[in-house]
Every structure is written in structure tokens, then in C-alpha cells.
Design a protein around this nucleic acid. Structure first.
Length: 928
RNA sequence: GGGCGAAUAGCUCAGUUGGUUAGAGCACCUGCCUUACACGCAGGGUGUCGGGGGUUCGAGUCCCUCUUCGCCCACCA
């Protein structure tokens, strides 16, 4: 039994409410209920983008998970068997960096500890501090199924990772490649193309002269941004069609500093238009040069080591002078430039902006490095992933990201999946030193100690897999794959929607889709919802390093989780960034806090005036006994439900399709749904601007008088508020649940979280509802007149209502009936008149033609009123000729649709009538 | 360099296939401490729809162009 209602919503009760949901099993999914395995509910599943296991909650997580929670709660209320899978990502490189720093603070490197000890240390660290974020997600109300919490490095998921690797290898889609890849000299690992992020930076273009070896004194001038790599040069390349250098092809030049001779070769790679048209070829330190070198069978001397220091690593006999040995690449660059300048080889230095790749984890400038890595052949995987979006089996919201997705997949490049890290899934490959290729490489699902061919000892590959390889399997692995019989896999795969930020569209989303098709033949979900970024008022991305972030936990402490949620959801257009002020939480979250308070106060009013005695169910209340206001609010509720449903759209695609996915989005619904802010706004509009502002106000008198009418009012009010709480629950689950528990007649033990989504009652508003709408118009008109004429708020005024002629039902009768309401809502004494009163008066004409007249004698400054009326006339005098001109245009009348022309005529007529009335009024009031 | 998108109120954004007098939230201004709520109530739109040109009876909407901004991709050393 809930405690008596406090004056203020106490959000300190949120954890208890959350606990009640968990204890009721409200978030726990039941695979046997899924229609896919013979149950009676359509499944709806979301896999949570697993936060890094060491992460703590920031606004980005808050936004991401609130969106998911809104969708999950909505789906659950719609009757779906809802599953939201939570979990964390071991985040190989990120977590390893964190622990390395920890170890460094103790004066050690990971190499001091050794692999085994370091991994153990990391495991301990994760066990102790990891998963904090999952606790925090509970605080924001995330209705995830915690009985299924997953972790990318768990034994179960590791099985999936290994299975995936082996299957891809067996299909020939994983291969060992010897090539130049991105290398982070700080993290000491290779990176994928996606992990090496471009950054446009000002740089220099150095022009260096390479003299011909024939002693002719001629030379070739090359342009380079990275002179330090010249120690590894093996050739100069010119374009075969470049007449300037044709005669030099095949000649030798002398490599400055090193002093050896290298050939001039012809290759299309050299662009005659760039720089001098001559490019130096350094196969070991540039991915393009490596390709050129391969074409020309050139050597690959390595002159920069894994730390980014100059050193003779391989095939580099005496290329690195002693004075450069061991120098960092950037220090070496300066030194080399000096040496070139001293020798006269340096021709000039130009400023040159170019894109430099940085490590996405530590921001170190990436060094291209020649190494052996495992790659996934992407093109065959990309094909179905592309087709899925083209067919509409998958939609990406907002729509514009589909083009980005398609573009990337169309030009996809192979994926480097091996990392020279210790934290992660070890590559399931073993090497036998005794066997000959190809038997010396064994890929295995099980750990091996001896070679299956010769029986001697084998050693496992030292590398681990890219973190994104395991997260790419997330929708599969968390549901039990590769066990095809796993109940969750059968019941919930494919899942439904994926909610994430666009930054990881390629890192993660595209790869999940590709792997989903590869291993299950189906897309992992039908909807990808990409949301915006949390930014500060200067539109800078919120980040730890900038110190402009907002801690969601602070917001929850100050205003409660609902305030946070409402602010994020209601203030966010699809895919648009959320702008918040980290220096003014009060202002930033006022919307959410205020809305929660408003809801609470509606609840207080209701409980105070309606009482705790059960109400008659609405279905048993005779429509005839309802007032116009009752019918009006019920029709507004229907409209609100329809608006919410429209904004949210269908839960899943409904059009059957021959593809493996079975269903595709039809064009009309493809980009229509999940407009969460529109949904929130529609619900807010109803509960605040209609239920509270009008219905509640109109009810005050009725609730004070015992009797049959009071009972009707109680039923309608409780019904309408109950439905409103349901509509709002997905966004503000805590406050709605607390209020719902206290509704009169509430059945003990039932929870709003498991209640059903509202359904509209009637197709069209009844006449009584429309009549209340007219009354509302009168009130609005009177308020406006009061405001325009600065009538003191406390002042009672007389309002004269002149019904329009020819109305089907005498509006006078209707208005008479509602006069008590009008009077109370406007502080006025209305009366009905057949004729307009004489003397100065303010008029308003309602949509049906009914006139509202407020005699102004003694109320207002007549001069001011005259000025206002004259202004109105002038405005109309301006608009009328424009419209007349249009109607006099023969082509317009002839070609525009008849209804447009007709309404145009009507408007013109109305304007003229209104002008005439105003002119008449000005004459009588002001005498001119 | 290629591609995509955006430009509408002070801010964040809606604005369906061209069609009546361009909307919402927040902010702001005015007046109210009316017994659910000042975290509230009532009233108020503050706009050459980025500039220019075109198509059309009619353009915020379609076309061209210019300007500015954002995002994604990319091997000009």
C-alpha cells in the first residue's frame, strides 16, 4: 500500500520502484512465449551496445540507454515478449591502456609483469571496478533483463568468437597478410583502417634533390611530407607518361644521407600533377609504396622500429647513420632536414595541410608498419549487408545515414583483425615449426598443445582479436549462438532494433549486419536508430578531456531519473544533437523536472478531490450521462493516443517479402516511426494542455457536489489519467508508476510497467465533444479580449454571446448550459443576447460564426482600443488586395484545384466581412 | 579530392506528393502568490524560410547558381 501522497514527488523512491519491477520479473524475457517457438507473443528484442567494462556513465550512455528503454517499455506495453540484453565489452585496447597506466604508476611496464601476470591483473581490475556502469543504468531506469547480462570475454561468448573465426577461416575469408598496416607506436599494436582516424593538420612538404649516380650533376627533386622515411627508400617513381622524366627511367640516383644508389622506375602511382611529379618509394613505411614495391619486386628495408624510433630493423644494412639511431621519428625528421640542408640537397620547404592518421585510443600519430596480420576478406560479407538496406529489410534512421552506410560497404576494404595486445580473445591459430606449409598453420576451435599432423609441440599465435570482432557477434553470441538450439536464439533472433551513435556505424553496426548474414543468413535487426551527440552550449562534444561533461548521476541526485529522461527524449529531434549546459544543470533539466512536478500535482489534485473509493469502470458509464467536457476529454485522449502511435510508428515491418528476412519495410512506414520527441510532446500536450488546463478546471465544481454526476466525473477523470500515465510511462517510468499505484481502485500487485498500451475508444469525436470545443473557443476569445485590453485579472466582466444564425442546434442553449464553466474559467458573467450591445465593445468571431462580445465601458482605455482596432483594419486592407488579385487571375482560377479556389474565395469573403465589422466598430467606438 | 546533408523565431528543430494567413518546445516580454502546481496560471510570435536566378496560376517545398556550416569517405607523396 503506497504511503500518503507527499506534496512533492520524492525521487528518492526511485530505487525502490525499480526494485519492485525487478522483483516482479517485469524485465525478464520468456523465450517460450515467443511466437517463433509457438508462443502467443511477438518477440521484440534489443541488444544493448555494450559499454566498455571500465566505463562510467556519461550523458552519451544516458541518452543511448534512455532511448532504448523508451522503446523497450513501449514494446512491452504493446504486448510484445520484450527482451533487452545488457552487457559490457572487454574493450581490448582501451582496457589494456587503463591497466597499463595503473601498472606504470607502480613503476612498471606490462613487459615487466609478463603476459600472464598482466592479463591476470587486468582480470582482477575488471572484476573489481568493472560493471559500475550497469549499476548506474539501473538508476536511470533501464529495463534490461539483468538475468542475461553478457560480457564479450565470458567463456560463452569466447566460444562464439572462436567459432566465428574458424568458420570464416574455413570459408577462406580469413587470411594472413604481409603488408603495411596502421601501427600505434604507443599502444604497440596494429589498427584497422577505422581505428586510425584522420585529422587534418598543417604540415610541410619538403623538396629534396636526389642526384643522378652518373655524375652528370643532374638530379631529381622529390616532394615528401615525411623525410625521415627516406632512409628506407628503394626507388624513385615517375609516371611513365611524364615527358619530363622519360629519359631517366632505369637510371640510378644516389640516396642522400645513406649514400646508396637506387633506381628510377616508372609507375602510374606517380602523379605528374603533384609536387615535382617524382615520388620516393619506401615500401616498408607507406602502404602505397608497398604496393608499388611489390609491382617492381623491390626490397623492403625497415628503418623505423615498433616504438617509432629510427633503427635498422630488417634489410636495412647501414641505412641508418649512427647519429640518427634510436631517435624518435619526429626528432629524426628535424635532424634529417638539417642534414639535407647542410648538404645542399634540400631545395625548399612548403606549407602543406594534409590528413594525418591518429590512434583512436591514445591519439598518437599512427606509423605505417610492415607486418604480418590476420585479415578478413570483406567484399563477400558486404554483399548481403548492402542488399538488406536496399531491399528495406533493414532501415537506418535517420535516413541520411543509409547513404553513408551504402557508400562505405560499396568501397569496403579488408579488415585487419589481429592486435598485438594481451587483453582480448587470443587468435585461435597454432603454429607447428616441424610441418611444412600449409600444415604448419592450424586453426582450431579447441586449444592445442601438439600438432595434429606430426605430434610435436605447437605454439599459439601471440596476437588477440580486434575488440570489434567480438562485439560484431554481439546479437548472435548473447543469444546463445553458435548453439542453434539455444532457446534465446530461436525465440529472439533476429532482434528488432539497434540504438547507437553514428560514430560506430562502421566499427560495429555494419560488421554486426555482415556477420549476422554470414552466420545466420539473416540481418540481426530490422531497424538501426542512430541518435545524436550530447554537446555543450558551444556545440562542443561533451568529453572528459574538455571537462564539459555532465554526470547523469548528478542530475539524478538533483532532479531524479525521470527529469533526466524527459529532458533528453523530449528535447531531441531524430538524429539531432542534444545541447545542454554543463554549468547550469538547473536550466538544462528544468523541462524534465517541471514536467514531473506537473504530473505529480495532477495526481495530488486527483487524489484529493476524487478520493480513494473505487470508481465505476468507464465501460459501464452511460455515455448519455457524460457531460460535454467528459466526452471532450475522451475524444482528446483518443487523439493523443493516435498521435503517439503515429509518432512511434509500427514496432516492426509488416510487409512480407521473399527474402530470407521475411519482412521488409514498406516505403510509407520505413522512415515514419520512432519520433520519440513527437510522441513525448503529444502525450505532454494531452496531459498538461488538455487534461490539466481544461478538463481538471472544468471539473472543480462538479467534484464538490456529491451525486451521480460526480461519479461520472470521477470515472472519466481516473480513466483519462490512467491512460495518460500509460502513454507517458516509457519516458518517465518512475513518477508514472508511483502515481498509477495510487489511482483509486488500483488492484494491488499490478504494475504499470506491465500494463497494456492505450487504445483509442471511438473513431470520431462526438457532437458533445465538439460542442465543448466551441465552449473552449469562447473562453479563449474572452481571455484574449481581457489580455488585449489589459483588464485586471480579478475583475469580473460581462460577456455577451451572440449565436450565429442558422446553426443546427442553438448555440445559445449549449452555451447557456456551459455558462458556469465559462464564467469560472474566464472570471466573467456571460449572458446570451440576440442583439449586439450598444456602445464600445470588443468582439471576437468564432469558427462557427458565433460572436463573443465584451462591453468595454468602464474597463479600458477607449483610445487604446481604437488604435488596436485601426491596426487590425489596416492589416486586413493590406491582405485583401493581394487575395483579390489572385482570384482575378484567370489562370489561377482555371488551373488551381477547385477546393483551393473555393476556400480562397471564402477567406476573402470572411476578411471583407470582418473588415466591414471592424470599420463599423471603429466608427461607433471612436467616432471616425 | 569524392560523397552526403543542413541553412526556417534568440536556441533546438517540425513543415507529407508544390496549395488558404509558415508551426512546436525552450528562451523571452506583459500581467497574476486564483485553496493541485510560481517547478505554476493567463496573454503575447519576436520570421525578407541563407543570397541570387528560374519553372509554375501558385515555391519554405522543384531546378540552377553562389555563400556558409556539418558529417562520412579517401593512397596526392
Amino acid at each position: 500500500m503506497p504511503s500518503p501522497l507527499p506534496d512533492r514527488y520524492d525521487f528518492a523512491t526511485e530505487p525502490a520502484t525499480y526494485q519492485a519491477w525487478v522483483e516482479a520479473g517485469a524485465f525478464t524475457a520468456h523465450p517460450e512465449r515467443s511466437a517463433r517457438v509457438g508462443g502467443d507473443r511477438t518477440p521484440y528484442a534489443i541488444v544493448m551496445p555494450p559499454p566498455n567494462v571500465t566505463a562510467i556513465l556519461h550523458v552519451g550512455h544516458g541518452l543511448n540507454n534512455t532511448i532504448q528503454d523508451v522503446i523497450m517499455r513501449w514494446a512491452r506495453m504493446k504486448g510484445a515478449e520484450a527482451l533487452w540484453v545488457p552487457g559490457t565489452d572487454h574493450a581490448g585496447i582501451a582496457t589494456q591502456n587503463v591497466v597499463e597506466k595503473l601498472v606504470a604508476s607502480e613503476g612498471h611496464t606490462r613487459f615487466d609483469l609478463g603476459r600472464e601476470a598482466f592479463v591476470k591483473r587486468t582480470e582482477e581490475f575488471v572484476a573489481k571496478t568493472g560493471g559500475t556502469i550497469l549499476e548506474q543504468l539501473r538508476a536511470i531506469g533501464a529495463s534490461a533483463d539483468w538475468t542475461r547480462t553478457a560480457y564479450t570475454l565470458s567463456p560463452e561468448l569466447s566460444v562464439a568468437v572462436r567459432e566465428a573465426f574458424v568458420r570464416l577461416y574455413e570459408r577462406g575469408l580469413i587470411y594472413r597478410g604481409h603488408r603495411v598496416t596502421h601501427w600505434c607506436p604507443r599502444c604497440l599494436t596494429s589498427l584497422s583502417d577505422e581505428e586510425a582516424e584522420f585529422n587534418d593538420e598543417p604540415g610541410k612538404l619538403y623538396h629534396v634533390s636526389y642526384p643522378l649516380a652518373d655524375g652528370s650533376g643532374r638530379g631529381l627533386i622529390i616532394a615528401t611530407t615525411r623525410p625521415e622515411t627516406m632512409l628506407g627508400d628503394v626507388a624513385l617513381a615517375v609516371n611513365p607518361n611524364d615527358d619530363r622524366y622519360r629519359d631517366l627511367i632505369g637510371k640510378m640516383v644516389k640516396l642522400p644521407i645513406v649514400g646508396i644508389e637506387i633506381p628510377v622506375i616508372a609507375d602510374d602511382y606517380a602523379d605528374p600533377a603533384f609536387g615535382t611529379g617524382v615520388v620516393k618509394i619506401t615500401p616498408a613505411h607507406d602502404a602505397n609504396d608497398f604496393e608499388v614495391g611489390k609491382r617492381h619486386s623491390l626490397a623492403t628495408p625497415v628503418v623505423i622500429d615498433e616504438h617509432g624510433a629510427m633503427r635498422e630493423v630488417a634489410d636495412a644494412d647501414n641505412r641508418v647513420p649512427a647519429e640518427l639511431e634510436g631517435l624518435d621519428r619526429f626528432v629524426a625528421r628535424d635532424r634529417i632536414v638539417e642534414m639535407l640542408r647542410a648538404s645542399g640537397a634540400l631545395q625548399k620547404i612548403e606549407n602543406h595541410d594534409h590528413a594525418v592518421r591518429h590512434c583512436y585510443r591514445c591519439d598518437t600519430v599512427v606509423e605505417p608498419r610492415l607486418s604480418d596480420q590476420w585479415f578478413v576478406t570483406m567484399e563477400p560479407l558486404a554483399k548481403p549487408a548492402l542488399q538488406a538496406v536496399r531491399d528495406g529489410a533493414i532501415r537506418i534512421l535517420p535516413e541520411r545515414w543509409e547513404a553513408v552506410y551504402v557508400n562505405w560497404l560499396t568501397n569496403i576494404r579488408d579488415w585487419n583483425i589481429s592486435r598485438q595486445l594481451w587483453w582480448g580473445h587470443r587468435v585461435p591459430v597454432w603454429y607447428c615449426d616441424e610441418c611444412d606449409p600449409p600444415q604448419n598453420i592450424i586453426v582450431s576451435r579447441d586449444d592445442l598443445t601438439e600438432c595434429p599432423y606430426c605430434g610435436c609441440a605447437v605454439r599459439q599465435d601471440e596476437d588477440v582479436l580486434d575488440t570489434w570482432f567480438s562485439s560484431g557477434l554481439w546479437p548472435l553470441s548473447t543469444l546463445g549462438w553458435p548453439n542453434e538450439k539455444a532457446p534465446d536464439l530461436q525465440a529472439f533472433y533476429p532482434t528488432d532494433t539497434l540504438v547507437t551513435a553514428p560514430e560506430i556505424l562502421f566499427f560495429w553496426v555494419a560488421r554486426m549486419i555482415m556477420l549476422g548474414y554470414e552466420f545466420e543468413g539473416r540481418a540481426p535487426y530490422h531497424t538501426v536508430y542512430l541518435h545524436g551527440t550530447a554537446r555543450d552550449t558551444q556545440h562542443r562534444k561533451m568529453s572528459k578531456s574538455l571537462g564539459n561533461g555532465i554526470d547523469p548521476m548528478d542530475v539524478i541526485k538533483l532532479y531524479g531519473a525521470d527529469a533526466l529522461r524527459w529532458t533528453l527524449i523530449a528535447g531531441m529531434g531524430m538524429g539531432a544533437d542534444v545541447v545542454l549546459d554543463p554549468n547550469d544543470l538547473d536550466k538544462s533539466f528544468a523541462t524534465g523536472r517541471n514536467f514531473g512536478t506537473k504530473l505529480w500535482n495532477i495526481g495530488r489534485f486527483l487524489l484529493d478531490r476524487v478520493g480513494q473509493e473505487p470508481v465505476q469502470p468507464l465501460a459501464s458509464v452511460d455515455r448519455a450521462s457524460m457531460t460535454r467536457a467528459d466526452q471532450w476529454i475522451l475524444s482528446r485522449l483518443d487523439a493523443a493516443i493516435a498521435d503517439c502511435d503515429r509518432a512511434l510508428g509500427p514496432l516492426w515491418p509488416t510487409t512480407p517479402h521473399a527474402s530470407a528476412d521475411g519482412r521488409v519495410w514498406k516505403e510509407s512506414e520505413r522512415y515514419a516511426g520512432l519520433k520519440l520527441n513527437e510522441y513525448a510532446e503529444a502525450a505532454r500536450q494531452f496531459v498538461w494542455n488538455e487534461l490539466a488546463d481544461w478538463y481538471l478546471e472544468s471539473l472543480k465544481a462538479r467534484l464538490d457536489v456529491p451525486g451521480a454526476d460526480r461519479e461520472v466525473a470521477r470515472s472519466v477523470l481516473v480513466y483519462a489519467f490512467d491512460q495518460a500515465l500509460r502513454l507517458l510511462h516509457p519516458v518517465v517510468p518512475f513518477v508514472t508508476e508511483s502515481l498509477w499505484q495510487r489511482l483509486p481502485g488500483h488492484e494491488d500487485g499490478t504494475l504499470l510497467v506491465s500494463a497494456s498500451w492505450p487504445q483509442a475508444l471511438a473513431a470520431a469525436p462526438s457532437r458533445a465533444a465538439q460542442e465543448f470545443e466551441q465552449v473552449r473557443e469562447v473562453v479563449l476569445a474572452v481571455r484574449q479580449i481581457r489580455g488585449d485590453n489589459s483588464v485586471a485579472p480579478g475583475k469580473m466582466i460581462e460577456v455577451v454571446i451572440r449565436p450565429a444564425g442558422g446553426a443546427e442546434r442553438a448555440p445559445g442553449e449549449l452555451l447557456q448550459h456551459e455558462l458556469p464553466t465559462i464564467g469560472r474559467l474566464t472570471r466573467s458573467e456571460p449572458r446570451i443576447a440576440a442583439d449586439a450591445p450598444t456602445g464600445a465593445a470588443a468582439h471576437a468571431v468564432l469558427s462557427g460564426g458565433t460572436e463573443v462580445i465584451v462591453p468595454l465601458a468602464g474597463l479600458v482605455d477607449i483610445d487604446k482600443e481604437c488604435a488596436r482596432l485601426r491596426g487590425e483594419v489596416a492589416e486586413l486592407e493590406k491582405q485583401i488586395p493581394a487575395r483579390e488579385g489572385r482570384l482575378n487571375n484567370a489562370k489561377y482560377v482555371e488551373r488551381a484545384p477547385a477546393n483551393v479556389v473555393a476556400s480562397d474565395r471564402e477567406i476573402l469573403q470572411e476578411m471583407k466581412t470582418k473588415r466591414d465589422q471592424l470599420v463599423e466598430k471603429v466608427r461607433s467606438l471612436c467616432g471616425a
